[in-house]
Amino acid sequence: MPVESDAELREILGMERIAVVGCSTTPGKDAHEIPKYLLDNGYEVIPVNPSADEIFGRTAYDSLADVEEKIDVVDVFRPSDEVSGIVDEALARDDVAVVWTQLGIADADAATRAEDAGLRVVQDKCLKVEHQRLVV
């Protein structure tokens, strides 16, 4: 069952390294502004976007498989029908602890697969909103 409790959300928000799948280069888009907010609030943001070389002065990776750094949380800014493939990529790594899908994004089957493999899942919630509500 996806994470819902404030205590668990606070624990997840205490993790430092967040890979943002679908991170945007376009200011004003949520997929740009929310990762920027996270970066400005002390998180290490790893942009994942095959159409960009760099975002926020950081290397943008084509996929989760290409990320060399350790990943704590995979934050998904892609349509719900792409979540399953992203979960597959997260499960292929041995360092991901959480898959978080942003507002309006969810895939119950992919969430169950991730949970069955030992990952925690947060669906249909905004990292920035939850950070402001529970941490700031």
Results as ranks from 00 to 15, higher is better:
residue 19 A to W: 10
residue 11 E to H: 09
residue 5 S to N: 01
residue 11 E to C: 00
residue 10 R to I: 04
residue 15 M to V: 00
residue 22 G to F: 06
residue 29 K to L: 15
residue 34 I to L: 12
residue 25 T to E: 13
residue 20 V to K: 01
residue 10 R to W: 03
residue 30 D to W: 12
residue 10 R to V: 07
residue 13 L to N: 10
residue 28 G to V: 02
residue 33 E to W: 01
residue 20 V to N: 07
residue 17 R to Q: 08
residue 24 S to G: 03
residue 18 I to F: 09
residue 6 D to K: 08
residue 28 G to M: 10
residue 27 P to Q: 14
residue 21 V to F: 02
residue 28 G to P: 10
residue 11 E to R: 14
residue 29 K to Q: 15
residue 18 I to R: 11
residue 15 M to A: 01
residue 23 C to V: 10
residue 33 E to G: 12
residue 9 L to H: 01
residue 26 T to R: 15
residue 7 A to G: 12
residue 17 R to K: 13
residue 19 A to G: 05
residue 25 T to R: 14
residue 5 S to M: 06
residue 24 S to I: 05
residue 31 A to C: 12
residue 7 A to V: 12
residue 25 T to A: 14
residue 34 I to H: 05
residue 28 G to H: 11
residue 8 E to C: 05
residue 23 C to T: 09
residue 16 E to H: 13
residue 8 E to A: 14
residue 20 V to P: 11
residue 21 V to T: 12
residue 18 I to E: 07
residue 22 G to A: 01
residue 18 I to M: 12
residue 30 D to Y: 14
residue 12 I to D: 01
residue 8 E to I: 09
residue 18 I to V: 15
residue 5 S to T: 15
residue 31 A to K: 05
residue 6 D to Y: 10
residue 31 A to E: 09
residue 22 G to S: 00
residue 19 A to Q: 03
residue 15 M to C: 03
residue 31 A to G: 10
residue 13 L to H: 05
residue 9 L to Q: 01
residue 19 A to C: 13
residue 24 S to D: 07
residue 15 M to Q: 06
residue 33 E to P: 02
residue 23 C to S: 12
residue 26 T to W: 10
residue 32 H to V: 02
residue 11 E to G: 11
residue 9 L to F: 03
residue 20 V to H: 06
residue 10 R to H: 12
residue 25 T to N: 10
residue 20 V to T: 08
residue 27 P to F: 06
residue 15 M to L: 15
residue 30 D to R: 13
residue 9 L to I: 10
residue 27 P to A: 12
residue 9 L to Y: 06
residue 13 L to E: 05
residue 14 G to N: 11
residue 33 E to H: 06
residue 33 E to L: 12
residue 26 T to L: 12
residue 16 E to G: 11
residue 29 K to F: 10
residue 15 M to P: 07
residue 6 D to M: 04
residue 19 A to D: 11
residue 26 T to G: 00
residue 32 H to D: 05
residue 22 G to L: 05
residue 14 G to T: 13
residue 11 E to T: 02
residue 29 K to P: 05
residue 9 L to C: 02
residue 12 I to G: 11
